[in-house]
Simulated scan of single mutants.
Amino acid sequence: MQTTSWGLVLTLWGAGLGAAAQYGKFSAIFDQLPEVYPEAGAALGLIVSVVGLLGIFFGVAAGLMVARIRYRRALLWALWVGAALSLFQALLPPLPWMLVSRALEGLSHLAIVVAAPTLIAQICAPEDRGLALTLWGTFFGVAFTILAWAGLPLVDLAGIPALLAAHGAYMALFAVVLGVRLTAVEPEGATPRLSFSRIAQDHVEIYRSPYVAAPAVGWLFYTFCFVSILTVLPGYIAPGSRAFVMGAMPLVSIASSMSLGVFLLRRVSAVSVVVLGFGGSVLAMVWLWLAPGLPMACLALAATMGLIQGASFAAVPQLNDTAATQAQANGAMAQTGNIGNTLGTPIMAITAGSFGYAGLPMLAGLAFVVGGCLHLALARKRQQA
């Protein structure tokens, strides 16, 4: 009987925190970057966005490439490359070189977010996968909280290079630890052929499959709403409670995912929990439409979105039996997640600017409805198959 190595699960999750920090370390210090690159102007935004843009184009390809390289090897290489790039960035090189390093860091990020959850699914006993992958699903929220609570004080104390060097050391530490811990772990399965035609064929196969595509389809609408809501909503919350609500929303989302989400995953399928989360989020948006900026409605929304967050990752191994298809599903989630993160905030901001506050709950509510309905449609397609 397979038993779960929770120490190894937590270590892989720790590597995921480093991957999330690849995305978030420059977001946290974005307001300070003009002091480093005073002539950059609008190009500064690329320092943050180029990581996500690569995910849009190479998310699915990353699933195929990681399966080809093998999961352990890809993860370790990604951690070492990420460590080296962060240490290089700590030198604050000229902007063109910084952008090149960020593009390479985007590839490192993709390899980690595909390989790590695939490995977690392989090392867990079936009954523990829901909890382990729900924990994995918190990596972005936890990392951004750590950057806010510990990273920014470090920058205030020792400057931007100190944060980047600390991140590099963190990635190197996890590369060393996982290099030892993962020696006996290697998912079985054939090594896929790697070519441009195969990558194109992979896109078609993934998004035609109601099994491989389902987590990614729901993830698109979740990410479209999550970052955009956290960006646009604060302007409509009373100033006296704004800081508390915006700080609490990611934490409430994580708490909901790890408590109610895990409880439900032991009783119903992950897809059912995701659909429940979408339905609850629709109701929360109706509440916010009727009571603009109400703190309790904001926290209720965070709690229902937390169900989508954790259960989406748990759905990957429930719907896909092999490491190769799980890597494909995780790669597709990386792709759709980056699409949602990239498009969500500007579209939400334009909608709110055009229709006022009501545009926010209407657009987000519609996105939640579509996400839930597509999950139900794919579930029906699986039943028919």
Rank of each mutant, 00 (worst) to 15 (best):
F278G: 00
A62W: 07
L76G: 00
R102A: 11
R208H: 14
G59Q: 05
P93V: 08
R242A: 10
Q89P: 04
T342Y: 10
Q335L: 06
G106M: 12
F57E: 05
A116G: 11
L299Y: 01
Y222Q: 14
L10R: 04
L135I: 15
G18Q: 01
A324G: 08
L294P: 00
V100S: 12
L343G: 05
Q384G: 06
S259V: 13
L374E: 11
A248P: 08
N341L: 14
V185I: 15
A238Y: 10
L374F: 07
W289T: 00
I254T: 03
A367W: 04
A379H: 05
V217E: 07
G18P: 00
A349N: 12
C225H: 03
L92N: 09
Q32R: 15
G151N: 09
A121K: 02
G106R: 11
A327G: 13
I347F: 13
L119N: 02
G137N: 09
P126N: 12
L46N: 07
P295R: 02
R129I: 13
R68I: 02
G16I: 02
A238R: 08
A78N: 06
K25D: 03
L265K: 07
L301I: 01
E39L: 07
L12H: 01
Y236S: 14
L91F: 10
G45M: 08
L283C: 12
H203G: 05
L163A: 11
A303S: 02
A255R: 04
L53D: 10
P317H: 02
L230M: 14
M305Q: 00
F263K: 11
